[in-house]
């Protein structure tokens, strides 16, 4: 089998199609929600909705509001919280700050930005992979997660895990020839791109809705800021 041909396919036409599906799919999802009708809120606010929303974003991003040992909420299951946070941290570092990925962004967007030094990205990637394994185990054993996990939830994990793992293996030149690892990585990325609009991985888009709603409600009631 000629891996280079597979690689060219995965980096070429398949990627293009996957990206189009990704864009179109997310646009579809977005529109379906945006035009479903929104009630005008007639409640007289006691605080600032906008301020609340902004704080809500900051909290969501800086994660400090429910640091387990302070808020006493995650004392029973800290793994779910810590692993989830580290996974996202690693994922973002790898996607947006890894030198090779910035080259991809540059070719897509027309501009790039400085990268994080490889060894740090590398460690974050490793941490993210370990975190994913922990999340996987947690999903296997936690009674709530067992209850709410359907096939889609397992596929989510799988489709995110393969690009992460293959990317790591490729960066370290492990097991297979480089172009084999590269092909697997790209194929997995393409599949992920197609899967995202079909699944709850698209939460990164609706995150902004939910956070804004949460913040506006709390701001309106003068709970925050």
């Amino acid at each position: 089998m000629n891996w280079l041909a597979i690689l060219d396919f995965a980096r070429g036409p398949f990627f293009e199609v996957a990206l189009l599906v990704f864009i179109g799919g997310l646009a579809y999802r977005l529109m379906r929600i945006l035009l479903l009708g929104w009630h005008f809120d007639r409640i007289k606010p006691a605080g600032s909705k906008l301020g609340g929303a902004l704080i809500s974003y900051l909290r969501g991003i800086l994660i400090w509001p429910f640091i387990p040992w302070v808020r006493n909420t995650f004392s029973k299951n800290p793994v779910i919280y810590i692993a989830g946070g580290l996974f996202h941290l690693g994922l973002f570092a790898v996607i947006f700050l890894d030198a090779a990925h910035i080259l991809a962004w540059q070719s897509l967007l027309g501009f790039g930005w400085p990268s994080l030094v490889t060894p740090i990205v590398d460690w974050l990637a490793a941490i993210a992979i370990v975190a994913m394994i922990l999340l996987f185990i947690n999903r296997l054993v936690n009674p709530v997660l067992k209850l709410i996990s359907g096939p889609a939830e397992w596929l989510n994990l799988l489709f995110v895990f393969i690009p992460m793992l293959s990317g790591y293996i490729m960066a370290h030149h492990l097991f297979f020839a480089y172009e084999v690892n590269f092909s697997i990585h790209m194929l997995a990325v393409d599949i992920l791109l197609i899967w995202i609009p079909l699944s709850r991985i698209s939460h990164f888009m609706f995150y902004f809705f939910a956070r804004a709603i949460h913040g506006a409600d709390f701001g309106k009631r003068a709970v925050i800021p």
């Binding site: 060219d8 980096r11 070429g12 036409p13 990627f15 293009e16 990206l19 189009l20 864009i23 090779a100 990925h101 080259l103 991809a104 540059q106 070719s107 897509l108």
Partner: peptide, 11 residues
């Protein structure tokens, strides 16, 4: 002169 990680085709 394009980095190898960049896609070959982009819409």
């Amino acid at each position: 002169y394009q980095g190898q990680s960049a896609p070959l085709l982009r819409p």
